[in-house]
Amino acid sequence: MSLHPEIARVLAALPPLDHGATPDPEALRAAEAARVPPLEDRLPLHAVEDAIAVTSSGEVPVRIYTPAEADSYGLLVYFHAGAFFLGSLETHDGVARSLAKETGHKVVSVGYRLAPEAAYPAGLRDCYGVLRWAAEHGEDLKWDGGNLAVAGDSSGGNFAAVVAAMAHDDGFDRITHQVLFYPSVDLDFDVDRYASLRDNAEGYGLETAGLKPFNSFYLDSGADPADPLVSPVRREDLSGLPPALVVTAEYDPLRDEGELYGHRLKEAGVDVTISRYAGANHGFVANFGWIPEYHRAFEEAGEFLNRR
């Protein structure tokens, strides 16, 4: 299938990219913030509240989404995208709302610290700390004691995969699911490592030439691409990790590394669903989730979390 016509229309209106320039975090963050829709235009839920999670890594801002009134809920801890230096509770509020609605879970979105201001592994520690905080405060969150899932898109998918591995290594085996939307799981930017890096190199939003400069803030802060805590696809033993839903996009440079990670999980005995969305590009869950066939990714996450 060709690129979805609505995605193609939006991409055609974007200015040309200059991959030779170093990204300006402040300018890009301001541009993201300017695109956040007003509150009245957002998906309504039973309750949305901001809180501070007091964790082993310090105080971390979180936003808690309650889909409907109920006595108890499964919990879903969500980590937003942004190449480790962009994104916020606000920019990905829509993703968290849709996840809450379509899964029926209470969603805890994590406002983790960003590079370059916060060096590796500050953001990762925030994410892991909030996971543990959510489990420890289950009564306050009305956790039903069942599902405790992690989810993330792009770099947030990286954090979700790594947090699942960290929890397993710590003997904290309460995570029941991991939902990885077009995850960035290999931060070695050799263009020959995956066919999709060449096949989808240009013209689809995220471009292969932009991967290194956009991730440079994270890598230059001390993150080593050879470390499985930075590139989870490099973890040797994937056995014992929680069941995974890996969602990829047909026209995404990161497509093949996400699918490889899913296949490696399968080979290690993990229950895995790999779901490639035809005609989609990187970021489609956040940017084009209003298109019915791409909103399906949220519904698929709900089916994955709620299946018996």
Results as ranks from 00 to 15, higher is better:
A135F: 12
A149S: 12
V150Q: 04
L148A: 04
A165D: 14
G145L: 05
M166C: 01
W143C: 00
A164Y: 08
D173P: 08
N158Q: 09
L148M: 02
L148Y: 01
A149N: 04
L180A: 09
G152S: 05
G145D: 05
I175Y: 09
D153N: 08
N147E: 14
H137I: 04
F159K: 03
N147G: 15
V150N: 03
G138S: 03
G138M: 01
W143H: 06
D140A: 13
H168V: 10
D186K: 05
A160L: 07
H168E: 13
I175G: 00
A161L: 11
I175M: 14
D140F: 03
V162H: 11
S154C: 08
Q178W: 11
G156V: 00
E136V: 00
A167N: 00
G145H: 00
V163Q: 08
M166D: 12
W143E: 01
T176D: 08
L148W: 07
S184L: 10
F181S: 09
S155T: 13
V185Q: 10
E139G: 04
G156I: 02
D170G: 11
S154Q: 06
F172D: 15
N158W: 09
D169E: 15
W143N: 03
L148N: 00
K142Y: 03
F172T: 03
F159G: 00
A135G: 13
N147R: 10
G138A: 09
G138Y: 01
H168T: 09
A151Q: 07
D173M: 06
G152W: 07
R174Y: 13
A165Q: 15
E139Q: 14
V185P: 13
N158L: 08
G138V: 01
A167I: 07
V179G: 06
F181Q: 14
M166G: 05
F172L: 14
A167H: 03
H168F: 13
S154A: 13
L148T: 03
G171L: 11
A151S: 11
A165H: 14
L187M: 11
S154P: 04
N158S: 13
A149D: 04
Y182H: 14
A167V: 06
F181E: 04
E136F: 02
A161T: 07
V163I: 14
N147Y: 01
W143Q: 02
S184Y: 02
D170W: 08
L141C: 04
R174K: 15
I175L: 15
D173T: 15
Q178Y: 12
Q178E: 15
G156R: 07
V185L: 15
D169M: 12
P183Y: 02
S154N: 05
D170P: 00
T176S: 15
A161F: 06
M166Y: 10
D186P: 08
F181G: 14
D169A: 15
H177W: 02
A135V: 11
T176W: 11
G146Y: 00
L180H: 12
S155F: 07
D153E: 15
P183C: 02
L187P: 08
D186C: 12
S184C: 15
L148F: 00
F181K: 08
G146T: 06
A164P: 12
D144Y: 02
D169C: 10
D140N: 03
D144P: 04
V179C: 06
L187V: 06
N158Y: 09
S184H: 09
E136G: 06
H168Q: 14
D144C: 01
S154F: 09
